Amino acid sequence: MSRVPSPPPPAEMSSGPVAESWCYTQIKVVKFSYMWTINNFSFCREEMGEVIKSSTFSSGANDKLKWCLRVNPKGLDEESKDYLSLYLLLVSCPKSEVRAKFKFSILNAKGEETKAMESQRAYRFVQGKDWGFKKFIRRDFLLDEANGLLPDDKLTLFCEVSVVQDSVNISGQNTMNMVKVPECRLADELGGLWENSRFTDCCLCVAGQEFQAHKAILAARSPVFSAMFEHEMEESKKNRVEINDVEPEVFKEMMCFIYTGKAPNLDKMADDLLAAADKYALERLKVMCEDALCSNLSVENAAEILILADLHSADQLKTQAVDFINYHASDVLETSGWKSMVVSHPHLVAEAYRSLASAQCPFLGPPRKRLKQS
C-alpha cells in the first residue's frame, strides 16, 4: 500500500486566492494483479454453464480479502454459449462490502496482453458476489490457432484489481511565511564533478583513453575500487588504474551511474553493462540491467540471455529466462542460440529441462510459493 502523499503547497495549487485553511483528501486504492494459466484448455468440458475456478489470491499475505477468477468455457447461458465468460469473485471478506475495479486480458504466445476488457467503474462486491463479462471473447476466435491465444493449448488470463480503501483527510492552515525547501541536487552536482573533471585525484585508463576521477567517490560506490585504493596496490601508489576489459562507451555509462545513480543509455548496452556491474560489484546497476534484459526477452535471444545471466550470477534474470524458455519451449528449441547452448553450456540445458519437467508435473513435489530491489 502506498504512503499517503503530503498535500501540495497551496501557493502551487492555483494562481488564484489562497485560503486560510485547507483539506486534502486521499482515497486510498490498493492495486494488484494475478495470472492464471489453464493447461490443455481444449479438453475443458463443453457443457453450457460449466465452471472452472482459479485458486484464491489477494494483494498480499496480510490481506484478508480473498478473490478468485471464474471461467465458463462455453458461456454462462444460452445467450453467451458462443463466448467464454469471465468473472472476478470475492471469496471471503471481513467487511460487509468492498468496491473494486478490474481489468481482464489474455496473454498471447509472446506474453503480450490482448483482448483487454475492464470495468468502467468500481463495482460493489459482497462475499460470494462476482462481476465480469458474460461475453468476454468469442470461442471461435479464441480457438483459432492463427490468433495465437492458446500457445501449446494453454489459456493464460491476466487480471488487474484495484480495491478502494478508506479515504484519509489531511488538513492544515496557511501561513504568510511559507518556506520552500529546494530539491536535493546531489546527483546532478556529483555528475558535474565527473563531467568537468574537477578536483580529480586519479586516472582511469580504458582502451587508450584516459578519464579523470575521484578516488573517494569510486571507493564509496564500488567495493572493488575501494579494495584497489585501500591496500598497497599499484593503483593506490600511482593513482592510476588500467581497465582492459570494458569498452570506453560502456565504461562511461558505468561511471555515470557511479556518480549519479542513473544510467540513461542502459537499454542500448544492458548486456555489456551487466558484465561491468558484476565485475565492479555495483549491485543496483546489475539489477537494473537484469530488468532491462528481462523486458527484451524473446524467442530468438532467450538462450543467449540465459548464458549471460549464468555467467554473471544474475539470479533474477536467470529465473526469468528459464521461465520464458519453459513457456515458449517449442519455439526456443528451434533457435540457433539454443542449439549452440546445447554444445557450449549443457548444464544450462539440463537446468531448463528440470524446470520444465517440474512445471508440467506438479505432483512430483509440493507447490512452490512464489514470493528486491534495493
Rank of each mutant, 00 (worst) to 15 (best):
M1K: 00
R3V: 13
R3E: 08
V4R: 11
A11T: 10
M13V: 04
S15F: 05
V18G: 10
V18R: 07
W22M: 09
S33F: 04
S33L: 09
M35S: 08
I38V: 02
N40P: 05
F41W: 09
S42H: 05
F43K: 12
C44K: 01
C44M: 05
S54D: 04
S58A: 12
G60S: 11
L69F: 08
R70P: 01
K74L: 04
L76G: 15
D77N: 10
S80I: 13
K81R: 12
L84M: 09
L88A: 08
L88Y: 00
L89Y: 13
L90F: 09
V91S: 06
P94A: 04
K95M: 12
R99G: 06
R99I: 12
K101F: 15
F104Y: 15
F104Q: 02
S105D: 12
K110E: 09
G111H: 09
A116H: 15
M117V: 09
M117W: 09
Q120A: 13
R124K: 02
V126K: 14
D130F: 01
D130W: 00
I137K: 03
R138L: 10
E145S: 09
E145H: 12
N147W: 12
L150N: 02
D153Q: 12
T156L: 12
T156C: 09
V161S: 09
V163A: 02
Q165M: 13
S167P: 01
G172P: 03
Q173N: 03
Q173E: 02
N174S: 02
T175D: 05
M178L: 03
K180N: 07
A187W: 12
L190T: 08
L190E: 01
G191V: 03
L193M: 05
E195F: 07
D201R: 00
L204I: 13
V206M: 10
G208V: 02
A220C: 12
A227I: 13
A227G: 14
N244Q: 06
D245G: 03
M255V: 02
F257M: 05
K262H: 02
A263E: 05
P264Q: 10
D278G: 03
A281Q: 10
L282S: 05
M288E: 06
C289I: 12
E290V: 11
E290S: 02
E290M: 11
D291H: 13
N296D: 03
L297V: 13
E300Q: 01
I307W: 10
A309S: 03
V343D: 09
S344R: 12
S344H: 12
P346G: 11
E351G: 05
S355T: 06
C361L: 14
P362A: 13
L364C: 15
L371F: 10
K372R: 12
Q373T: 14
Q373A: 11
S374Y: 14
